[in-house]
């Protein structure tokens, strides 16, 4: 896809998803890129003693999947990301497959803005819930 879906072509209920299995390499790479070296992510012994019982992925790694769906699929390239809320509901562990799904829930023709429900799930259980506001690409 070269261009994203224009505001005029979006409909309430439109949805798109992407999925990724989280690996140890993902966590180590994300720790390096983000400088977030919280032991619950990278230290098995500390993580085992934490409330999670084992190492968990960075919440923003899963949240990044939402950003990717918005920017590459729905609405897609040309979209301006205006805002995002995130509520971290449950941890993501190594080997979990995270599915990020966005769904158009409101359209504002005056401002040409779209609101999308955003959710990341693991085995159908929400791990991150929230809402995004975007400005989709304009029709040429």
């Amino acid at each position: 896809m070269n261009g994203g879906i224009c505001f005029e072509d979006l409909k309430i209920g439109d949805t798109a998803s992407t999925g990724k299995t989280i690996t140890e390499a993902d966590i180590l790479m994300f720790a390096a890129v983000s400088t977030d070296t919280n032991p619950v992510h990278i230290n098995a012994e500390v993580a085992a003693a934490s409330m999670f019982g084992e190492r968990i992925a960075h919440g923003m790694l899963s949240a990044g999947l939402i950003s990717a769906v918005l920017g590459t699929r729905l609405p897609g390239p040309g979209t301006v990301y205006l805002g995002q809320t995130l509520r971290f509901r449950a941890p993501v562990k190594i080997g979990d497959t995270v599915t990020a799904t966005v769904e158009v829930t409101a359209l504002d023709p005056a401002k040409k803005r779209a609101t999308l429900r955003t959710v990341c799930t693991v085995a159908g259980k929400p791990v991150i819930e929230g809402e995004a506001v975007v400005m989709p690409p304009a029709r040429a």
Partner: peptide, 16 residues
Amino acid sequence: PPGGVHAKQSVRFHRR
């Protein structure tokens, strides 16, 4: 101290 975690976050992007 170690062990803290994100609970929720809201962010507004003012420019690309």
